[in-house]
Design a protein around this nucleic acid. Structure first.
Lengths: 247, 247
DNA sequence: AAGTGGTCTAGACCACCGA
DNA sequence: CGGTGGTCTAGACCACTTC
């Protein structure tokens, strides 16, 4: 009663098999969207196991970041929530500790031929084009630019971006990906390095060419592990600081 | 029957109270060493709760890295596992994202009067001295310096370092802390920022004064939460990179 | 064989949410 | 109010380690 298309069952514990099964449901999109997944009770009946066993599988997926549970409501496939995580770390040296809510302005958005780096990072197929998007982020009340960003996505999957009203997604890109292109960012890897501002970057950050800048390279992936967005963000190095807890 | 010296009980769930209680036992050293902690059954009897509740508390502490369980043997306070996973805390990467495993050479090690910053970070008591340790890290096969490090620890707790043979712990400091000083690093927080090389730094990195450098500040803490080591690492900004996964 | 954790069951009652 | 997840109970049987 727990056997799936292929019996992945090599005498794994039931809750493990459930976990695999549920992971498939999430990755294939059968579960997801705004709906809650079936309740614990429902699942336990459906698969003929005890509620505690279903619970254990679900708890494990929650701790892995695939699901979230809300008491009284239900269990949901998790939305990405790190949208502007980076800005937690770009501390403006204002009266201390004030969180900056950055505004954003999109400078350009156009189809282009991918570089080799983009092909590698986004795993593009031959002849697949990309969409290039450039953006500047500002401290909200000031005119001061904080970050210049170059963003690349597959032109195939993100076609709708080209015809959309950019003003509707300037600040928040990932919700727009979801809304317009049905692509949901699940996690990302960021790499920090330092370099010197090239002309375009310098212009947008109102500094000189060759000024030291921090570069955050981000590769964002969907819940099924496919890379969906590659991004390079440039900020003035002198203002940059980034904290991580290691365990 | 679950009440402790001070009733920390504000109607917290039982397993939470157990978790706090067990955490105390670990941090105070009542549990630890080579012995297993009491069995689930024993604990459930002792505190008058169901075994499943004890289990939930323990599982949570296992996932937080405080305990490990071994089927058939028992549950143990987690030992530092530096043996092979040598660079647990070393996240620096080369431009391709490969983790770099550098060799190290200790330049100096001596007792000193702490700066105010050190007093604050390490929570030193009045008149407590520190040990200053400086070190250079090299790419393994090259003569090229990658990082210059200034490391501060309490002179009281780390006295044995001064009389030890430095060649025995050049590469691996944390196992040496454990072996020589019975101090186990459990976690650490790193902050990355950007600056310009001062004289000492420039000399060791074979570059000029005011060359752009990446600065990684690390505060390492023991299992009881006490700060034990404060470290500043400097690397040439042009060669530096650092990766983090976001979720 | 005895003791440990690992898995699983089959409930109970509570707190929270939405209609 | 009914349905959801959150907590808790009180067992069962299994797999593993140690003696």
């Amino acid at each position: 009663m727990l056997t799936q298309k292929q019996d992945m069952d090599t005498r794994l514990p039931i809750y493990q098999r459930l976990k695999d099964l549920f992971t498939q449901k999430v990755q294939s999109g059968q579960w997801g969207g705004a709906e809650a997944i079936p309740s614990e009770h429902e699942l336990s009946v459906q698969y003929g196991v005890a509620p505690g066993t279903v619970r254990k599988a679900i708890e494990s997926l929650v701790s892995q970041g695939y699901l979230t549970r809300q008491q009284g409501k239900g269990t949901y496939v998790r939305q990405a929530s790190f949208g502007n995580a980076m800005f937690r770390f770009f501390r403006h040296t204002d009266p201390d500790g004030q969180v900056i809510q950055p505004a954003a302005r999109i400078l350009s958005i156009k189809k282009a031929i991918p570089s080799q780096a983009e092909i590698n990072k986004l795993l593009l197929v031959p002849n697949e084009k990309v969409i290039h998007l450039t953006r500047v982020r500002y401290a909200q009340n000031k005119n001061e630019p904080l970050l210049y960003e170059e963003i690349s996505v597959s032109a195939q999957r993100f076609e709708p971006l080209l015809s959309a009203d950019t003003s509707s997604f300037e600040d928040l890109l990932y919700p727009a990906y979801d809304r317009l292109c049905q692509v949901r960012v699940h996690r990302a890897t960021e790499t920090i390095s330092f370099g010197l501002a090239e002309l375009e970057v310098a212009k947008c950050l109102l500094t000189e060419v060759n000024a030291p800048v921090a570069i955050i390279t981000r590769l964002a992936t969907a819940i099924d592990g496919q890379p969906v967005e590659w991004r390079k963000s440039y900020g003035l190095a002198s203002r940059f600081s980034y904290s991580i807890e290691l365990r």
